[in-house]
Write a protein that binds this DNA or RNA. Sequence first.
DNA 1: TCTCGATTGACAGCATACTTACAATATGGA
DNA 2: TCCATATTGTAAGTATGCTGTCAATCGAGA
Lengths: 177, 177
Amino acid sequence: MPPRTSKPMPSKPDPITMDAVYTAPGYLFRRMQQIAVAIFVEECKAYDLTPVQYASLVSIRTHPGIDATRLSAVIAFDRSTLGSVIERLEAKAYIERKPSPGDKRTKLLYLTRSGAALLREIIPSVERAQARMLQPLKPADRKTLLALLTQLVDLNNEASRVPLRAEDALEHLGKSG
Amino acid sequence: MPPRTSKPMPSKPDPITMDAVYTAPGYLFRRMQQIAVAIFVEECKAYDLTPVQYASLVSIRTHPGIDATRLSAVIAFDRSTLGSVIERLEAKAYIERKPSPGDKRTKLLYLTRSGAALLREIIPSVERAQARMLQPLKPADRKTLLALLTQLVDLNNEASRVPLRAEDALEHLGKSG
DNA sequence: TCTCGATTGACAGCATACTTACAATATGGA
DNA sequence: TCCATATTGTAAGTATGCTGTCAATCGAGA
């Protein structure tokens, strides 16, 4: 509860408003990201998994044997950040790293049995979290917001430091040589 | 949309899609935040100021003599994070910390002359950055997105770990003793 | 007035998210 | 074949963003 002092307001010099911050798109995006992470963590706290770790696990399940660099392109993290994320997931025994037979530089990523199990279990919590983020809006507005955001993120893809390179960039993973 | 083709992938086993990630609101918020920061930093790189530092400077200009805890409420950072932000701003000589006459615990924050000057200079770059974030959308869609996002952030305020407590919570700053 | 609970700034620790740099390795072209 | 170039994982460094904890201080009620 904010302290509600009901004093008469004397002289505050020129109350320049905070609107330059509060109405800026960048501020709203940061706030919304903060809120989204808080909701995710709260809903999933029984599993001790962060949003980033969750996205990584889903990607590894979708692309078993992917390497770290390609994984970073698929979920739009930079390689450095992803390195420590992978370390933590490996420490928790949700994934395994195996040396690539063809390339001594790369290590291939696989879900462990326990990682796959966790993923199955956590999905309801994740869905609850995702729903809660948009809950306050009217259903029609949720659809509108998601559509506009999807569009904007896609059109701005190249503006980010680590653009998303979706599955198309990974076709060679399926090839034989 | 990112190139998310549903073409038949030959030798990939059971191509579980990434849609569970890509269409999740939380993922879109994270992506958009990434993009927004990248655009801000790029437009403002001549000034070496981050979005968070900018918001802090604006708040201190609006509320001269604010203390760190109240500043954290006004821009919705937690106190720990803000501590290091303030340190950096002080190291760059954009702000000063002065002991509070009434309360030995708090230190009051003020813009320096150089901080005020920087703020005046950087505003065009910040506005360019904010505009660029929404640029790819049609003007009507920009308005819609901003309106929905403003609404959502406000309605979800309490869900974040550090809810925004706007100027209303700061009335006592105007008091004399 | 005195004491207890709250507040404040500081610190340690963890987890993104980015930068640059580097060694090991791979690859393509002369 | 050999070399210039590129890629890969890793590391160090900076900056949010959160969790705790702590000592100093403040303020309100007994």
